[in-house]
Simulated scan of single mutants.
Amino acid sequence: MNHRGKKFVASYSGGKDSLLAIYRAIQMGMEPVALIITFNTDRNESWFHGVPEKVLQEVSKSLNIPIRLIRTSGEEYAQNFEKELLLQQGNGVEVCIFGDIDIEEHLEWCAKRCEAVGIEAFFPLWKEERRALVEEFIKVGFKANITVVDTTRLSEKHLGKCLSAKIISSIVLEGADACGENGEYHTFVSDGPLFSYPVPFAYKDKVYSNQYAILPIQTKV
């Protein structure tokens, strides 16, 4: 299917896979209208990757793409996601981009949300080799730092590291997935070919939540 010229929103997490999917969509000639990100109203940060609102505002400025926060609790998560898609459809959006790679449950959830409002769900990275994707991400010039590590799957020494060929090799040597697709790690992307300037951020003190070691990020003072 030819997507050139189509307006899209993207399900943005702050991490590497969503940025690579957005990058590919733009390279295909698609037009970004907004990035949508679910925002945890209980913790006052984005769901899953824990990015605070002020950092997201800086990302929006650097990318020159509006970021729409879907402020939601867990109970109304799917419903509020669909509401935002419906709103964006009114802005001429025909497609929603997702950065999922090969987990069928994720594909089904995303497809259902889009089907409910009559928008096409598009997965530019779908079924591609995981390590090749993260290597492409690094090669085109994106910069991502590891902000969350599942310590039952990956050693804590990787926390805070910038993704590189060396770090990916270290991850793989420990038996973890190069792309972290099984939840071994999460990243925050602060620079790359879509950014007009590097997004400044700083780490807060390390925290632990169950088996996860986390370096929360904040705006750089």
Rank of each mutant, 00 (worst) to 15 (best):
Y12G: 04
K83M: 11
Q79H: 11
V199D: 10
R131S: 14
W47R: 13
G15H: 04
E135S: 04
W109N: 01
V95L: 07
C162S: 11
A25K: 03
L163A: 15
S60G: 06
Y208I: 10
Y23I: 05
E129T: 05
S155H: 10
I119C: 11
T72E: 08
Y212K: 09
E120Y: 01
E76F: 06
I217S: 06
A78W: 00
E84K: 09
G92V: 08
L35V: 10
A78I: 12
E108S: 12
I103Y: 03
C114H: 03
E76Y: 07
L107G: 01
V221F: 11
P32M: 03
E58Y: 05
P193Y: 13
I146R: 03
S170F: 05
N91L: 13
C162A: 13
K161T: 06
I138Y: 09
T219W: 02
Q211W: 02
T187L: 13
V199M: 07
H186C: 11
R24L: 09
Y77Q: 04
K204S: 13
N64R: 10
C110D: 14
L56A: 03
I101H: 05
A121S: 14
Y185E: 04
I70D: 02
V95F: 01
V149M: 04
Q79K: 14
G141S: 07
S11R: 02
E128I: 00
K6S: 14
E120N: 00
Y212V: 01
E136H: 07
V51W: 03
S13P: 05
I103A: 05
P200H: 13
Q27N: 07
G192V: 14
G50S: 12
M1G: 15
F81Y: 15
T151N: 04
R153F: 04
A111I: 01
H186Q: 14
Q88K: 03
F142W: 09
I22R: 08
P198H: 13
N210R: 11
D42W: 06
K112Y: 04
A116K: 14
A132N: 12
F98Y: 11
H49Q: 09
Y12P: 02
E108I: 15
Y203C: 13
G175A: 09
Q79Y: 10
E94D: 14
P216A: 09
I65K: 05
T151L: 03
F98S: 03
G92N: 06
S46E: 05
K16I: 14
T38P: 00
P124S: 07
V199Q: 10
F123R: 07
F122Q: 00
Y12S: 05
T151F: 05
G90C: 04
V221P: 10
K54C: 06
L69A: 05
E129F: 03
A132G: 10
I119S: 12
K6W: 01
S196Q: 15
N40V: 12
D100G: 11
